[in-house]
Write a protein that binds this DNA or RNA. Structure first.
Length: 309
DNA sequence: GTACGCCTGCGTCACACGAC
DNA sequence: GTCGTGTGACGCAGGCGTAC
């Protein structure tokens, strides 16, 4: 490092300089010191900001359970809980204490646990938002949909005066006037108007696709919610057959036998990559009207079995 | 112990810029 | 225009670690 603070190492002979020059040098020294101090402080602030943002980024990634860090963190946490269970068994903890730990494990890592369900909910909502057309697309499609032909037909082609006062018809009127506004602003000529009018099916197709997609996501949400509840109930039934210590031993065994779990994963993936399983056929025979609509996506819903579940 | 390289802080100079 | 101030660039001094 440098010498002691305030050490003077003047390169000029002060006796040869005027008072004015000496004052200027002294001022400039202080100024330079202050400038360096500010510069250093600024760099430190930036470094702190980088650290904070990097940490925030990591936390968000962990929260979303995406990326390598999240995977590793998840595995580490899971191992910790498993070790905790092992320790409890060794130290002769009470059944209620063991049960509390198993409940914690279930909520965090099970297929039907709180964390996984919350994660699924988050991602499905994200998909819903991404499916929504952008404002630009919406405006363009609505304008096309309500172009000249509709405008011409509207006064005479309406279904009746009663309908005109409904919110839907009001909405139509608004979008029609929006098109008129756009039309004059863009200086659209008759030929262009006709061509746009002929493209109305694009808007209709977009609407149809959107409605179908949203319906699919909504049904998927419902199905997963139901599956979660069913699995939870089944777990409770199993839990009544086995005691907490036995359940804890099972969790520990699963965690400590990654090779077996790897084989099961491979088997699981193979089963689901061969197309819909036999139960689908049975489902088709059922008169159940709730799940049939998403029967086609059912095979894709299956995910690799995780060792923790 | 000594030579060497690297790092950090210092003083000074030169220049830009705003206030007057 | 002059003056004061801030800051980049430069060279120097001194501390520290390392190889020999």
């Amino acid at each position: 490092m440098s010498g002691p603070p305030g050490a003077k190492r003047s390169r000029v002979d002060p006796s040869t300089l005027s008072d004015k020059k000496l004052r200027r040098l002294e001022k400039n020294r202080e100024s330079a010191r202050e400038c360096r101090r500010r510069k250093k402080e600024h760099a430190q602030n930036l470094q702190r900001q980088i650290n904070r943002l990097e940490n925030e980024n990591l936390q968000l990634r962990l929260q979303l359970k995406i990326g390598d860090e999240a995977e590793k963190q998840d595995e580490a946490d899971q191992l910790k809980v498993s070790e905790g269970l092992e320790q409890m068994l060794r130290s002769g903890a009470s059944e209620s204490e063991i049960w509390a730990s198993i409940e914690e494990f279930k909520e965090k890592y099970a297929d039907y646990g709180r964390d996984r369900r919350s994660s699924i909910q988050f991602h499905l909502e994200k998909i819903e938002r991404l499916l929504r057309p952008t404002t630009t697309t919406t405006v363009a499609m609505r304008a096309i949909e309500n172009s000249s032909k509709d405008e011409e037909q509207a006064p005479s082609g309406g279904k009746g005066e009663g309908e005109e006062s409904t919110p839907a018809s009001n909405q139509k009127t608004k979008t029609k006037s929006l098109f008129s506004l756009l039309s004059s602003y863009l200086e659209i000529n008759d030929e262009q108007n006709q061509l746009l009018s002929d493209s109305r099916n694009v808007a209709k197709e977009l609407d149809k696709t959107y409605v179908q997609s949203i319906k699919l996501v909504s049904e998927l949400k419902g199905r997963l919610r139901q599956d979660g509840a069913d699995l939870d109930q089944q777990f409770m039934e199993v839990a009544q057959i086995l005691n907490p210590s036995q359940l804890a031993k099972f969790v520990i065994w699963v965690t400590n036998n990654p090779a077996c779990m790897h084989m099961l994963n491979a088997l699981w993936q193979k089963t689901f990559s061969e197309g819909p399983d036999k139960d689908d056929k049975d489902d088709k025979d059922d008169k159940d009207d709730k799940g049939d609509d998403i029967g086609s996506v059912e095979g894709d819903v299956g995910k690799p079995m995780k060792s923790e579940s």
